[in-house]
Amino acid sequence: MSFVFSEENLAKIEALKLRYPSPAALSLPCLWMAQYQDGHISLEAIEVIGELIGTPPMEIYRVATFYTMFHLEPIGKYHFQLCKTLSCALCGKAEVLEHLIQRLGIRPGESSDDGKFALSQVECLGSCGTAPVMQMNDLYYENLTPEKIDAILESLEGEHR
């Protein structure tokens, strides 16, 4: 399996290169593009990025392992990231989490066998006013209740059909 950046991403990288004094500054944007493209960051992608921006793969790998939002292994397509920080914890996060575990059949940090869902708990998402809150891929779901979770799952099921 080998990794190739899409034409669109390659154009973006070239445009970004003009912005910084050193192309090594593009480690993070390139890692993001690779993750959006494949769903995770493969070692091949790291090699490719290294070559593109003239940085040893080890340096890219170090960056990728440092941030929890980068996935070096494939994870479920829909990634539920439930906030576990104070406001959400006080406003019923536990109940929502329990319901998610029940419905998805996975624990935080796991992906479902069919590759559809992944569940994790994260630190503050910065939306305390609408706690409890969850981020599904790039979307925020606010004021969560077990019923709302059911509705979200249903809409996702619909999307799948």
Binding site: P56, P57, M58, E59, Y61, R62, T65, F66
Partner: peptide, 9 residues
């Protein structure tokens, strides 16, 4: 040669 690095945090 860049073989070694500190990974994780």
């Amino acid at each position: 040669t860049h073989e070694l690095g500190i990974v994780g945090r």
